[in-house]
């Protein structure tokens, strides 16, 4: 079985937010990859290619369309990254095993465009270049989106911690 299978599935589940749809996504991704294998450009990033197929499949699915429509993406192409820099000292955010669930829901509640860059960066450990290839945006956009995603995640975690 391909080395990315587990990771692809995990990513699909985070995007689709349910098991059945995640399975459909992964299956369709493999089907498309096998069919389009000859069109894969050698020398380009293969992992990014696979994730791109998965992501595009998701975005054109019903759930995907709904997820992107309900959360309009702010214009993150402009504006200096500094503007969204986290000014609060983050030492208050101490996550341990006991509130893992809290973090999971914080990630889950992120708008899909933030969720995906965060996961591609921190879970898949892709480089900015790879993320840019995967989601087909310039590196600058990857950086600002990632920065906003992290600020949003921290804010959400802080809020949830205060509530508990």
């Amino acid at each position: 079985m391909c080395v990315f299978f587990d990771q692809l599935y995990n990513f699909a589940h985070w995007l689709a937010q349910n098991r059945d749809e995640a399975e459909d996504l992964v299956q369709e991704t493999y089907a498309k990859a096998l069919r389009g294998f000859s069109s894969y450009q050698q020398g380009t990033n293969f992992r990014a290619w696979m994730y791109r197929i998965l992501r595009n499949t998701f975005l054109t699915s019903r759930t995907g369309l709904k997820a992107t429509q309900t959360v309009p993406l702010e214009n993150d192409e402009d504006g200096p990254i500094l503007a969204v820099a986290d000014t609060q000292t983050p030492e208050a955010i101490l996550i341990d095993r006991s509130n893992q669930a809290l973090l999971e829901s914080a990630i889950d509640e992120l708008p899909v465009h933030y969720r995906e860059v965060l996961l591609l960066c921190e879970v898949e450990e892709m480089s900015y270049q790879e993320i840019a290839e995967t989601i087909a945006v310039p590196i600058g956009t990857v950086m600002s989106r990632l920065s906003r995603a992290r600020v949003a995640l921290r804010a959400s975690v802080r809020q949830k911690l205060q509530r508990t």
Binding site: I93, E104, I107, L118, E122
Partner: peptide, 16 residues
């Protein structure tokens, strides 16, 4: 530390 937790939380789903 937050990253570590994100990484752990972010890999929660396993295929059956």
């Amino acid at each position: 530390q937050l990253r570590r937790s994100v990484k752990a939380a972010g890999t929660r789903f396993r295929p059956s």
